[in-house]
Amino acid sequence: MARKALIVWGGWEGHEPQQVAEIVDTVLRQHGFQTEVSHTLDSFLDVEKLKQLDLIVPIWTMGHITNEQLHGVCEAVRSGVGLGGCHGGMCDSFREATEWQFMTGGQWVAHPGNDGVRYTVRPVQPDHFIMQGTKEFEVCSEQYYMHVDPANKVLAVTRFPVADGPHVTNGEVDMPVVWTKMYGQGRVFYSSLGHVAAVVRQPDPLRILTRGLLWAARAEDAV
């Protein structure tokens, strides 16, 4: 039986959510998933339907989620449905929804230098399924400064500071870029890479995203 995934896109258009959803949809179908692509958060209201899924992929920067919508997706993930996503589409989604941040493992707070900063992503768990085939690489994009859950299992980091900002006086820090965690029985995966579709399509970010979504869906055998 084919695994099932729900992709929900919307929010701020600057992150090209529809284009990113199309990339994710193509990747998941290539790996044998049956997908549903939605442009409404009301897709989170039918909890029993959500619980029949293997994976939920939110691609929704900022915006507002109702308590009922939030309850549905959280309940599904707690029950064992995987959750995976990237950049602001998952960890800058609903800034007032602290339970969403608890579930996803982090929240964007800054990107010093804005778009076009060149920085290095360094795997710290190279043997993990998600990071296999990925070595240290450079990205020219936004470098996300995140507030993160200490329970996260960090798989890759980036070194700050690269660009000037109020964080510089703290000295050098390694900021998580890729992580996993659990939320109840659900596997959660996140990558901060993917400001726009062109970045998502780059070989290293796309490999990480693809393998991360498979991991979250417990579909490692689909590689």
Rank of each mutant, 00 (worst) to 15 (best):
F160N: 12
V199P: 00
R118L: 12
L50I: 02
L214H: 02
S93Q: 07
D221M: 03
L70V: 00
S43C: 07
V27L: 15
T26Q: 15
D204G: 01
D174N: 13
I59H: 08
L28D: 04
D115C: 07
Q125E: 15
G89M: 03
A216S: 11
G194S: 05
G212K: 00
G116N: 09
E220C: 05
M175G: 03
L50M: 02
V162H: 07
R211E: 06
W9F: 15
Y190C: 12
W12H: 14
L83R: 03
G116T: 13
Q143I: 10
Q101C: 11
R122L: 08
R207V: 04
G194L: 00
I7V: 01
L213A: 06
V47Y: 03
K4Q: 14
M103T: 10
V200H: 08
R95G: 12
M146P: 04
P166L: 05
L214F: 06
D174I: 05
G105F: 05
Q143H: 10
G89C: 06
F94E: 06
G165L: 10
G84W: 02
P123M: 09
V27T: 15
T134K: 00
P205Y: 01
Q101I: 15
E99Q: 03
Q125D: 15
A222P: 01
D127Y: 05
L70C: 11
Q125H: 09
D149Y: 11
L206C: 06
L209N: 11
P126I: 08
T210E: 15
K181L: 05
V157A: 05
D115A: 13
I208C: 04
A2K: 15
G88P: 00
H87C: 14
D92T: 00
V77D: 01
Q202E: 14
A21P: 02
T134G: 02
R118H: 08
A163C: 06
K4R: 15
Q30P: 00
G171F: 10
R159K: 14
Q30T: 06
G10W: 03
K181F: 05
C91T: 13
V173P: 00
Q52K: 06
Y145A: 01
